[in-house]
Design a binder for these strands. Structure first.
Lengths: 253, 253
DNA sequence: GAATCGTGTTCCATATATCGGAACAACGGA
DNA sequence: TCCGTTGTTCCGATATATGGAACACGATTC
């Protein structure tokens, strides 16, 4: 399985610029990717011509706006996103915390959309970012209901916090619990201080994604885990209803 | 000015998939771009491996989620977007119509953000899309206040509607008016039935973008053009204040 | 003001990765 | 089952990307 090496490098460039905290110069980018200056320059020039990369006032390079159109276009193709949006907003509104829509693509989990609450935990993962399978509530749900759609790392499970389930044994037990309960939780297993309740969107038995509410761990206790779980399951059911084309009177606040 | 041809083709692939109404097969894409099947396949395989392209259930190709992360990352780098957001929402809320933030990049105009109103005109241009210079209110503003930042087509000016200013003469007069008034209008010149009032965001004499409200032509008459223009100029001024770091008490509804 | 450092940009011969026709495989519909 | 279509793989010729080095430009320092 060989590849178009120059295209791969171009993609590397895009991700490097994306990942960098600020715009990068030709030299800096070259070092980052282990490329000679001339090669880095050529890649940047080509990408710039097409708008995927642009130069700021200082002449350094950063991701360009053409990427915005491509990215939003990709999201819009996802019917799930459009259908779930109202529900996400509704829940974020009622709970006052951030609500996510997460899906699986190519074995990985991605944040497809989010509606921010009024709480503190605003940043957390961003739309379009990948999240780990073994350290998230959604990961457990996919392992429980659609194991073929996600891939666990072949090596050791990275331990993000002291509470991360880093043994396959422990993880398997958690997955079992999630399957039995019909929802999953996460208490500080990925990001310290952040807890989460997630419910699967099951459409005719097939898992299409999950709705997740994230909040500071203490705050989640306060609302009540059981009650939150019920809310999320209801939200997931409403999204599924729209997915299957069943109309429905939306209100229920 | 030569180029990395394979990278250019890869970019073509991305835009072709973006522009297509549905996912495309290898053959269809090859025809679209005039590439042999094998080349199209190789490009798709490479891009797919990196997540910029993905395959749907039917095996056809479409833009991938990795693009979402890249695109949103690009938007977030734009300080103007973050600063303008509250103002956009405020205006959309008060006017009940869609409010846009538009900027210039590489000689073209791009929709940087939008806040949707409750009115009908929801679709119009999307975030990340390019809009024509000569047939939009923002185009006139840039021609008036920062002509170096935009480029007019070298050939004839495309006539989108009967009201499009398709002669350079007429356009020049409109630009003159915009410069004198400090805002610009557009009445059905680009999209039939859509009218627009736009005000420039001027930061220390330099034009950074424009705030635009778009509404069905009749509706805009109803609100009153003059009054709308005042609102937009005030909104632009508020954004500029934040740009320059001047704090400000936000309210004024 | 001169010198210096670090940039970004251009050049060019060489090696290498890309190209695309054609053969093969895998479906899906008739 | 057969046929038409689509996706995938192969491989040698050749156009293309490569990267070292030289150049140009600005900013910073002395």
């Amino acid at each position: 399985m060989e590849a178009l090496t120059s295209v791969e490098k171009a993609v590397d460039v895009l991700f490097a610029l994306h990942g960098a905290p600020a715009s990068l110069g030709v030299t800096a980018l070259g070092q980052e990717l282990g490329l000679p200056k001339s090669s880095a320059h050529r890649l940047l020039a080509t990408l710039t011509r097409r708008g995927l990369v642009e130069r700021d006032a200082s002449g350094r390079y950063q991701p360009g706006i053409a990427l915005v159109a491509l990215g939003l276009g990709a999201l819009e193709r996802e019917p799930l996103v459009a259908l779930a949006r109202p529900t996400l907003e509704q829940e974020a509104d009622v709970l006052g915390e951030t609500v996510f829509l997460v899906g699986a693509r190519a074995g990985r989990l991605y944040v497809l959309d989010k509606a921010e609450g009024t709480g503190f935990l605003r940043a957390a993962p961003r739309v379009g970012e990948a999240v780990p399978v073994h350290a998230t509530a959604v990961g457990k749900l996919f392992l429980a209901f659609a194991p073929a759609r996600v891939a666990l790392p072949s090596g050791a499970l990275q331990r993000f916090t002291p509470r991360t389930l880093a043994s396959r044994r422990a993880l398997e037990r958690a997955v079992e619990t999630a399957r039995a309960q019909g929802y999953a939780e996460n208490r500080d297993e990925w990001i310290p201080g952040m807890s989460v309740v997630a419910a699967p969107i099951l459409s005719r038995g097939e898992m299409r994604g999950a709705v997740v509410v994230a909040a500071p761990s203490a705050r989640l206790e306060e609302i009540g885990r059981e009650q939150t779980a019920r809310r999320m399951r209801a939200a997931a059911a409403r999204i599924d209803a729209r997915l299957e084309g069943r109309a429905q009177q939306e209100d229920e606040r």
